[in-house]
């Protein structure tokens, strides 16, 4: 699996670029990969460009050699998926339907799913230990349960790359701890990329890190090295000073 960004530029307005000529070449052994940068550095924009929500003004995003902005939505979903639990609306829809949404690309025209896929959904629910939730309404779940349900959804979807945007931003210590397990589980079969400025979490989970500031990549390499050599460039504080206060 390879994920290649070639000279990607993007901006919400034509005259104001958020991403400047970003090129990345991510290989199979670099995951889980963290995109690290301060607020407003363009990490979420970069993530949304990789999943195809934004179309770059120049350049392209290739997964296994395929330009994801040229694929149909369903073809794209087999290559790249998202896990954005804090941005999911708590609809009063049965959990099983939310999980089955992961298999949208196999849905039959009139709205049913093939039987073998329903069986796969049960396997995934077993793995995550949430089978007992299947008939509950998504709206009645706790935030941790919702996170698990959406994890089951993206596992069932089974794309090559799974993207998470600021996954720890609204989590209490328990759910943050649980998320480490979820990302490790996802990493067994998928390539996980997440954005974060939660340094402890990045250090605990990611293998490689990409440092981004003002829409430009300023570091790509192992997470340990990132902290020692690029942390100050990205966040503007010497790393030793930071851990002097917060520990790590």
């Amino acid at each position: 699996m390879s994920l290649i960004l070639k000279n990607v530029s993007f901006g919400y307005k034509k005259d104001k670029q958020v991403l400047h000529d970003i090129s990345l070449n991510l290989e199979g052994d670099m995951y889980p990969l963290a995109i690290v940068g301060p607020n407003g550095s363009g990490k979420t924009t970069l993530l949304k460009t990789i999943v195809g929500i934004y179309r770059p003004h120049t350049g392209k995003v290739l997964i296994d050699g395929k330009n994801i902005h040229r694929l149909s939505a369903k073809e794209r979903a087999s290559l790249v998926g998202v896990l954005f639990p804090d941005r999911a609306y708590a609809a009063s829809v049965p959990v099983i339907d939310v999980i089955m949404a992961g298999m949208y690309r196999y849905m039959k025209p009139i709205g049913g799913y093939p039987r073998n896929i329903i069986r796969q959904a049960y396997d995934v629910m077993n793995t995550l230990g949430i089978t007992h939730l299947k008939d509950r309404l998504f709206s009645t779940l706790s935030s941790g349960e919702r996170q698990l349900v959406l994890t089951a959804m993206v596992m069932l979807q089974s794309p090559k790359v799974i993207l998470l945007d600021e996954p720890t931003s609204f989590l209490d210590p328990y759910h943050r701890y649980m998320l480490v397990d979820i990302i490790r589980l996802l990493s067994e079969k998928h390539q996980v990329i997440f954005t974060s400025h939660d340094i402890e979490f990045v250090k605990a989970v990611s293998h490689f890190a990409v440092g981004i500031k003002d829409g430009k990549i300023i570091y790509t390499g192992k997470t340990d090295m990132f902290l020692q050599s690029a942390f100050e460039k990205v966040f503007g504080i010497p790393f030793t000073e930071y851990i002097g206060v917060f520990g790590l």
């Binding site: 929500i53 073809e75 979903a77 998926g81 992961g102 298999m103 949208y104 690309r105 959406l150 979807q157």
Partner: peptide, 8 residues
């Protein structure tokens, strides 16, 4: 974003 992610 979820809908987009699963291929809608």
């Amino acid at each position: 974003e979820v809908a987009h992610g699963v291929g809608v």
